[in-house]
Amino acid sequence: MNIKVKAPISTAVAIGVGVIVLAGYFIPSMDSIRFILLRTGLVLAAVALLVGIINLATVHIKKIGKESENSGYSLILLISLLITLIVGITDMAQTYLVGRPNFQITNWVFTNIQLPIETSLLAVTTISLTYAAAGILRKRMNMFSISFFFVVLLVLLGSFSIPSATIPFLQVIRDWILRVPALGGARGLLLGIALGTITTGIRVLLGTDRPYGG
């Protein structure tokens, strides 16, 4: 039988490193090695994030070159990315080279550009969520959609904290829903996610899944 393993070095590295980290959770003497490797993972994840941002910039630079319909948006994205980076790096240089911690301009960009867009996007979802909740009974009338709709309604009505609009009975029902049936379902979901994570992790550590180009 001829078994050909693709990328044997990468596979061996992933399995070896993973087994050491996993062993560190259960063997106390290997705890320090686990911490060193976790720190390595943290730094590599940070670098991978930077690589991702470089990739984002590269994709949009290519889009500008093609002069497509959306190339203007790509240009705007790159300009906002570059300006924020320049501002931040200037602030960082002032902090580390001059020794004066001052992230005032970076904070200004965050407070006056990022925060308003972020909050507005969340605010716009209120309208979408209202439409979706109203449409659920129109599109699909069954036991599950009815229970979903009434739970949404009861939790919302029970959450009012305006003294004149507060109905104590609804608050008791809301608390019970959140503490009992919703907790049961959420616990089932969490356990399912945990079991799925463990299965996927074991597949990676056994070399069955090789999401690193193997």
Binding site: G16, Y25, L37, G41, T200, G201, L205
Partner: peptide, 17 residues
């Protein structure tokens, strides 16, 4: 690829733990 393999190995083990 081998750098990504380190990241994936550590990530998988940390996720299991």
């Amino acid at each position: 690829n081998w750098s990504v393999a380190i990241l994936v190995g550590i990530g998988a083990a940390a996720a299991i733990g």
